[in-house]
Amino acid sequence: MIPLIRAELLKARASRTTRVLVAVTPLFCALWACLPALMPAASDAVRMANVYNMAQQAYVFTMIIGILGMCGEFRHGTITWSFLASPRRGRVVLAKLAVYGLVGLVVSALSALATLVAGAALLSSQGHPALSADVPWVLTGAVLGSTLYALLGVGLGALIRHQVGAIALACLLFMYGDAFLAWLVPDVFRWLPTGAARALGGMRLDSGGELLPAWGGGLLFAGYIAAAVLAARFITLRRDITG
């Protein structure tokens, strides 16, 4: 397993797309954090929560990094080399989970740091309180959530295999699909991946729908990852590699 993980790490580091996404994500989060810092809010606590919750926005990027890491192999046909070196295909996916979990963790931590620096600087410059005891928890939750999205990306990539299809489907599902379902049936939101991830971040919804406790959200999200990986293992991973 260790050689496979090292090989995946080398490929992840050598990929220009991954490097660009790793650099862009913290900037993106820092920019988003500026918006609620400048907006009027019901209370200082709410304003702070809105600012630091922007660290969660890294999830789109970490998920795409995970999808690209897996689907890129199918897109470029390099999966042939990977499976020739390791005919036990499940191990290739496990190595990718390990590596993109790590990449996701690094990106998420950098993004949380960027959100903290940008948010705190702007809040204090506006004369608002910039820190509270809740802030570390909000940021930790955001880091965990975005890291898990990278793993979900790998699982979805292995299941769907088609790069553009996987990214389009994942973005539709997690940016709009879950919200739409929640609008139809509000009680269901806490059980959806987005609801589980938000519970992890300790985020509370404006609509008032209660989320699971953070540990419950984390477990549920891990369950979604496991479901995607297992589905891939038993459905698409066995398929013929014909070109």
Partner: peptide, 10 residues
């Protein structure tokens, strides 16, 4: 196998 199965960026 096929000549094209490389990641073009590597």
């Amino acid at each position: 196998l096929e000549a094209t199965s490389f990641h073009p960026g590597l």
